[in-house]
């Protein structure tokens, strides 16, 4: 009897928390089909699925352009991060060189510096190089990451050294070794880096906000933020814009949901 009461309480609690988690997104989608009058009458469900808010938002701000900018910068910075990370990891795991220990120690220290402390001076650097409002400026600082180097390092350390020695005996070059053995063997680790760095790039806000003032160079997050400030209290339009910016990443999430969750768990536990 007592355990039944527990079970029922647990079910009610989970249902309630699921509602609290999902409701904001469902409501966002519903409001995007509402008129202002419908919203202020506190209706929950729109009377019809009228797309006029979408037309208006896309007419006012170039969210298509922001979307393409975001895809472009997130993809490029992910690919660049993968290249720099794999090369660096290979050097750290498979090669011994003087200064390796000191270098690793410096990198561990850098790992502790919060991004927000660095981002403002990075903005000065990019501004001085005349790279404001360019894709290069948006992408460049996120083309290498101490965090992912350490993650891939810990992943590859478990891989046996004999692979490399055997490959050397057979006469494989380092590049062949990286492409044919290292990358296939560390596929789960590389997937993790790719997924997380792509999501990071997709959601980045502070950096594009600092680096761009030309509205053509905006990404989705700072584009949405700028749009919200322009439209002040026009909530149906804001929710439409929010829906437009979140739908791609939600679809991405549902396709890769298991990989994304295990990526977050792996990088979380490893640290």
């Amino acid at each position: 009897m007592q355990s039944k009461i527990w079970a029922i309480t647990a079910y009610i609690f989970i249902t309630l928390m699921t509602l609290i988690t999902l409701f904001p997104f469902v409501y966002m989608a519903f409001v995007s089909f509402m008129t202002y009058e419908e919203l202020i009458s506190l209706k929950l469900i729109p009377s019809g699925f009228d797309l006029s808010n979408y037309k208006e938002v896309l007419g006012q701000a170039s969210f298509v352009r922001y979307f393409l900018n975001t895809v472009y910068t997130a993809t490029l910075s992910t690919l660049a991060t993968l290249c720099t990370t794999i090369l660096a990891t290979f050097a750290f795991v498979k090669l011994n060189f003087p200064g390796k220990k000191i270098l690793l120690m410096i990198l561990v220290c850098l790992l502790m510096v919060p991004y927000e402390v660095l981002v403002f001076c990075n903005y000065l650097t990019i501004a001085q190089w005349g790279l404001m409002n360019t894709y290069t400026g948006l992408i460049l600082p996120s083309t290498a990451s101490v965090f992912y180097i350490f993650y891939l390092n810990s992943f590859l350390k478990m891989m046996s050294v004999t692979y490399y020695e055997r490959a050397r005996v057979v006469g494989a070059s380092d590049l062949e070794f990286i492409v044919k053995i290292l990358i296939p063997l560390s596929k789960p680790g590389i997937c993790t880096v790719a997924l997380l760095s792509f999501i990071d790039g997709w959601n980045s806000f502070l950096w594009p906000m600092l680096i761009t003032n030309d509205s053509n160079m905006r990404l989705l997050s700072d584009g949405l933020s700028a749009f919200s400030m322009q439209t002040d209290r026009d909530f149906p339009l804001q929710m439409t814009a929010t829906t437009i910016t979140t739908i791609p990443i939600v679809i991405f999430y549902f396709i890769f949901r298991n990989q994304i969750i295990s990526s977050v768990v792996n990088t979380g536990i490893k640290n």
Binding site: T21, L22, N203, S221, L224, A241, T242, Y253, I260, V264
Partner: peptide, 16 residues
């Protein structure tokens, strides 16, 4: 379901 908000940008969640 519970993990979904994590991957959505803070700007979008904040707007809602």
């Amino acid at each position: 379901i519970f993990f979904m908000p994590y991957i959505i940008s803070t700007v979008a969640k904040g707007s809602i």
